[in-house]
Amino acid sequence: MAMLLAKKNLRALLRGAMDRKYRVVGPVREHGIVLFAEMSDPGALCLDELNTQNSIKEFFFPKTEKLFTYSLGKNDAAVADDFAPPRTVLIGGRACDARSLVALDRLFGWDYKDKFYFARREATCVITLACDRFDEACFCTSLGFGPRAAEGSDILLVPVEGDEYAVEAVTDKGRALIAEVKDVFTEGTPGAEKVAYPEKKFDLAAVKPWLERNFEHPIWKEEFLSCLGCGTCTYQCPMCHCFDIVDEGDIHGGARCKNWDSCQFALFTLHTSGHNPRPAQAARWRQRLRHKFVYYADKFGTEACVGCGRCIRNCPVCLSILDKLVLIGREAAAAPAQPAGAQP
């Protein structure tokens, strides 16, 4: 026997969570695009699109965050930094989204434990939907996991025959939520899984060594000419995590804000002297690939890419990181690394 959830009960599950004072976040349609947003009505849940426009990182590492606020009186000053995120159910992410949380945990918990990020992680129950379809921008399987991976989720819902989900309670937090709204679930034998696996598109093992060997390569100059230098790919990416800290306010009060920043902006590496060590878009793309597949992998043992495809679908000039990874895979196969000790 296993736990099942009828698809028609998905909204009842959200209603149950709302009744128990959870904030519910899920994909909703707004002005023609589907994006993760706070929901006031379970009926607004929109599962038409494979992937949302924005990623779930916004609900753990928001686009802007007040680290503290200050106010100045005539003879005194006050600083406030109380922060208590609401208890949240986040539904509708995919296995790629959930995996990004596991990888981001390592970054935000590395030398300094980011209290904002981890407070939200602890307050949020992540309910992931395994994929019953994919599109040409999806490449989770090329990164060594797949569309029904449970890693990072608290509850995984796997679509099965009979308009149902097989329910996998992954963590204690997930089990606690299920116990709270147990009426919407049933017991039974699940039908066959309806999970769609995209074809593997490149050899991940070849990417990092190739990038390490080819800091200088014609690819960097030829393949990225069309890049406009906007931040869409990095901001829609569930893994990109660079931020800037700015003070906003006046003599009476204000806030210190932590805002998303992007390595694709020319300003990102511009020195005060006027020198820019990454002077062209090609150098910024190289950095993006090397950060995701070399530096992050070296430091945190996993790639800073989950194959969700948002950067590909949203790029104004259709520049595809997947195409470039496939190209790198081909280059690597054509010119394999010399074995150690071999004569060049």
Binding site: E30, L35, N54, K63, L228, G229, C230, G231, T232, T234, Y235, V246, E248, N259, W260, S262, F265, L267, P316
Partner: peptide, 29 residues
């Protein structure tokens, strides 16, 4: 409210060719 300040609008626009956009000037901000 949905704007994420990715500046894709500016970067895709032929008329937005300023070397330093006003939004990137911070003295003053």
């Amino acid at each position: 409210s949905r704007c994420i300040r990715c500046y894709a609008c500016r970067q895709a626009c032929p008329m937005c060719y300023c070397e330093r956009c006003i939004v990137e000037k911070n003295q003053p901000q």
